[in-house]
Write a protein that binds this DNA or RNA. Structure first.
Length: 946
DNA sequence: CCTGACTCC
DNA sequence: CATGGGAGTCAGG
């Protein structure tokens, strides 16, 4: 059943590519006065002696603030840690800048102290005047909105995220202005982050969103894109930022302060890399690397003089704005502004919301596994020593190799050793990896013991212990208090029309949560990466604690203490420790199936390969010769590799053997990695000749693949970079290297970067769309997000039965009309669906997979039990399969236009128009669909395919 | 091909 | 004696 052609709601697409008004007005031709190379001390970019001038709060009148804000070109913002306690937030610094007619940059700056830490600490500048500042800013925001509207800068309705003005104004009037709660201050901050005004510059914009999300959980879908200097630098040269800058001796010295974390690039690094400088007087007092939130607590150097601190802050913000102006030019020149505004710059808020949400976590399976694993490791170590005939360190590969190869005289197969020993024919490298040890298993019992020890040790030290350690403490840079009381309203069952649970969801019943960081600028291809702990590489299969033990030992141990053995768990699946956040909720996982293979098919444009990669479309399109393949495939949906194998070996799809399928699969994946036949042969366990034959057959049957690979290489060679579908780039200087090894590495990377990077684009798009939809649903259900009264009202409404039409009314009454900006996003969805979406959390991303924590009706039997899940899956399918690729194409088309203009302008004279067209012809639309697969269950380890 | 974590040298 | 870089191994995509 072919669905109707995908209809992309305009509002969703608009939300995805919404640039700040200032940029939209001026386009990419905005005159920038900042020189790319600093040619003077202050060369017009930085006004002399202006820094800090307007920092005293009462020098900035309300009227002036409004005027400056509306007229500003760039706003630079930074969330500050308190010097005495960097993990708490002390304030927000804002700097408003605009180009004056004479070419100088006018600047106003505001320091907004917020947070509890400030209240008891008068040493922090501005704390004295906190009340007046807060009052000023609140009123300024409100007035500025009016002023902006009057000035024609309205920029679309922002009603959904507008401060509940009347109420707040009432509050400030009825009480002292200073009595604004911290939550209300954050609400103002959230308001700013959805302000459609001037560009908002920051370094690592994710930091801006942690506090704002607390005040406004639905901000995730409605935030403005931020001019993130870190992101921009990463887009301009992903490898440099992802791998960290080369540390020169110079930048560590002058600060004198703490040697900061390695690898993490700083504003200082970026400004140095692009030659943006500020007068030394400003820089001298700037905190090293702008790491206000990172320094050791009580490093008194910075806590001292208030004036110095303000000046350093001013310097930081000035630098921020200056660097941004520079990077904006470079992004524009390389045609990456659409990808920047439309995708990357909108993402930090979404990532912050996932980080702050965390995943509900049950330590029990881990604590029991910990003792089992500890005991197992001890006995394995003892047994290994016994088998080796002496003590050795089982975790040291060097010692293991010595024992296996020398003391015991074991041998691995010649093929493996030959591979490892290539190069200067010195000594054979003595590998101790799994494949080698498996080969030695027949000769001696020790290798099996070592493998078991490794497996158990890996499980214990990289999953079990870190998870138990991290669970209570945020190690991801989010101040701990933003991880508490995350929800404005506790999930009330009554909202779902469900019976009360056996145990009430009291505060005590709130599950522990595991938080990890999701980083946007740490890969060269555009994927996200996860750390502290990494939750993107959790083992899929359980580690079998019971069978890890070699038979002999197991029998002995069982004889020794049968009772104790029986009590220990036989296996541990780390994923089962991650679960839904309440008994009446469940996890849903949705992932793209073989998206990279489909993208390869798209780029190759090979009809036969497209047909094989898209069995779902086979019936609809494509030549009749292949339509039989799809229909006669195995009972369910025909498998992509099976179809490729059928072509490759010239057999009917139904008679493809497992071996043939595996060979086809390995070779297809190998194409994306630039894999040679030797590599493929080793992976398949066949001779290089056989592997080469399969590869050759694939090349013959799918000539489009060959053309694409060649085209990608020639494009890279001509330009020094390769693009993804939305125009993100990866620079590959090695492609022109004289060094053969470097050159062929770049040739392998260029194909991979296009495909892996484009897949990342598609899922990022999906994340943004999903965020927009969930935010809109929350606004609809809970009312305007910044009004606690509205939230409370929504929560206390009479229960609405999700199964009856009455719920539609209830949803409408709850404020569907007030959804504001994103109301159109919800148009395709009915009331119950909106209601369900409002209660969903996106909790994780694993490259081609999203994990959601969704409400789930108990009972299970009958359709009622899966009503929520069904609604969520329908929405997810629509977003991921229809809307996300469409959004990527749309942004990509903008990029293509820019490339073509650039090409016409003669800048890319060397590029062969042909190869560009073939590489970036996504503007024609994807030739593939990207179907998704669902799984659901109470824990991440027990997901069942749907 | 792209990652991160742990371990030892 | 600390510490950083590098390599090896292994978990994920």
């Amino acid at each position: 059943m072919q669905a109707a052609p995908p209809v992309v709601p305009q509002s969703i697409v608009a939300a995805l590519s919404r640039p700040p008004d200032a940029l939209a007005a001026s386009g990419s031709a905005v005159p920038i006065r900042v020189p790319l190379r600093s040619d003077g001390r202050d060369g017009g970019a930085v006004p002399r002696s202006e820094h800090g001038q307007a920092w005293a709060e009462d020098t900035l009148s309300l009227r002036e603030f409004v005027r400056e804000w509306v007229a500003s070109d760039v706003v630079a913002a930074k969330v500050l840690g308190h010097p005495a306690c960097p993990s708490t937030v002390a304030g927000i610094a804002l700097s408003l800048e605009r180009d004056a007619t004479d070419g100088a940059v006018a600047r106003q700056a505001v320091y907004l102290p917020v947070g509890e830490a400030v209240e008891d600490d008068d040493s922090l500048p501005g704390a004295v005047a906190r009340r007046r500042v807060v009052d000023t800013l609140v009123r300024a925001m409100l007035s500025a909105e009016t002023a902006a509207r009057r000035a024609g800068l309205e920029g679309g309705s922002k009603a959904s995220l507008a401060l509940d003005g009347e109420r707040l104004k009432g509050a400030t009037a009825s009480t002292d202005a200073g009595e604004l709660t911290a939550a209300e201050v954050w609400a103002v901050w959230a308001r700013l982050l959805s302000w459609p005004g001037p560009e908002l510059a920051a370094f690592d914009a994710k930091l801006l969103f942690y506090p704002a999300l607390q005040a406004c959980p639905s901000l995730a879908g409605g935030a403005r894109p931020v001019a993130d200097v870190l992101l921009a630098a990463w887009m301009l040269d992903p490898d440099a930022v992802a791998n960290g800058v080369a540390r020169s001796r110079g930048d560590a010295a002058p600060g004198g302060g703490a040697a900061e974390r390695s690898r993490q690039i700083t504003l200082h690094d970026v400004s140095a890399a692009y030659g943006v400088e500020l007068p030394p007087a400003v820089l001298r007092v700037a905190p090293a690397g702008g790491a206000a939130g990172r320094g050791a607590p009580g490093s008194g150097a910075e806590a001292g003089d208030g004036a110095v601190q303000l000046r350093s802050l001013a310097g930081h913000l000035a630098m921020l704005a200056a660097v941004w102006r520079c990077l904006r030019v470079l992004l524009s020149r390389s045609g990456m502004l659409p990808a920047f505004w439309g995708q990357e710059a909108a993402l930090p808020c979404t990532l912050a919301s996932i980080e702050v949400c965390g995943m509900a976590f049950d330590p029990e399976p881990l604590t029991t596994a910990r003792s089992a694993l500890t005991a197992l490791l001890a006995s394995l170590k003892a047994e290994a020593n016994e088998l080796a005939g002496g003590e050795f360190m089982i975790t040291s590969n060097k010692e293991v190799a010595e024992v296996l190869y020398e003391r015991l005289g074991l041998v691995a197969s010649a093929q493996r050793q030959a591979y490892k020993a290539r190069g200067p024919a010195k000594r054979m490298h003595k590998t101790t990896n799994e494949a080698t040890l498996l080969q030695m298993q027949d000769q001696h019992p020790l290798p099996a013991v070592i493998l078991a020890h490794r497996k158990a040790n890996k499980s214990l030290t990289t999953y079990v212990e870190p998870f138990l350690k991290h669970r209570t403490r945020a190690r991801i840079g989010v101040p701990a208090r933003f991880l508490e009381a995350r929800r404005p309203v506790p999930p009330a069952l009554s909202e779902l029309g469900l019976p009360p649970p056996s145990a009430p969801l009291t505060h005590e019943a709130e599950p522990l949560r595991l938080y990890s960081a999701l980083l946007q600028t740490c890969t060269a291809t555009g994927r996200l990466s996860s750390r502290f702990p990494n939750t993107q590489n959790l083992p899929k299969k359980a580690t079998e604690i019971g069978t890890l033990r070699p038979p002999a030992t197991a029998a002995a141990a069982a004889a020794a203490s049968p009772a104790g053995e029986a009590a220990l768990p036989q296996s541990l699946n780390v994923r089962s420790a991650l679960r839904a956040s309440a008994p009446n909720r469940e996890l849903v996982s949705v992932d793209y199936g073989q998206i990279e293979m489909r993208l390869l098919a798209h780029f190759a444009g090979d009809p036969a390969f497209v047909a094989a990669a898209n069995p779902e479309m086979a019936a609809a399109s494509l030549d009749p010769g292949h339509s039989a393949a799809a229909s006669s495939g195995s009972a369910g949906q025909p498998d992509i590799y099976q179809l490729v194998a059928a072509q490759c070996f010239s057999v009917a799809p139904a008679s493809v053997t497992a071996s043939q399928r595996q060979q086809a699969k390995t070779c297809c994946l190998g194409f994306m990695y630039g894999q040679g036949k030797a590599d493929a042969a080793r992976k398949l366990g066949v001779t290089p000749a056989e592997a080469g034959a399969v590869q050759q057959s694939l090349r013959t049957k799918f000539p489009g693949i060959v053309r694409f690979l060649a085209s990608a290489r020639s494009f890279a060679k001509a330009h020094g970079w390769v693009p993804t579908v939305i125009g993100r780039r990866r620079l590959l200087p090695g492609i022109r290297s004289a060094n053969q090894a470097a050159r062929s590495q770049a040739e392998r990377q260029c194909v991979n970067a296009i495909i892996q990077g484009s897949a990342a684009d598609v899922i990022k798009s999906a994340m943004l769309l999903l965020g927009a939809v969930i935010a809109a649903a929350r606004d609809a259900v809970f009312g305007p997000p910044l009004s606690r009264e509205c939230i409370a009202r929504a929560a206390s409404q009479p229960p609405a039965s999700v199964a009856t039409p009455a719920s539609q009314t209830a949803v409408d009454a709850a404020g569907f009309e007030s959804a504001g900006t994103f109301r159109g996003v919800l148009a395709p969805f009915d009331g119950p669906t909106v209601w369900t979406l409002a209660h969903c959390d996106v909790v994780h991303q694993i490259h081609d997979e999203l994990v959601l924590d969704i409400p789930s009706a108990p009972g299970g039997a009958g359709g009622a039990g899966t009503a929520h899940r069904g609604r969520v899956c329908r929405v997810l399918e629509r977003i991921m399969t229809d809307l996300a690729p469409a959004a990527v194409e749309r942004i990509g088309a903008q990029w293509l236009q820019l490339v073509q203009e650039e090409s016409r302008a003669g800048r890319g004279a060397a590029l062969g128009g042909d190869s560009v067209a073939r590489l970036v012809d996504f503007a024609q639309g994807f030739r593939c669909r990207f179907p998704v697969r669902f799984a659901a269950g109470p824990t991440y380890g027990s997901l069942v395919d749907l």
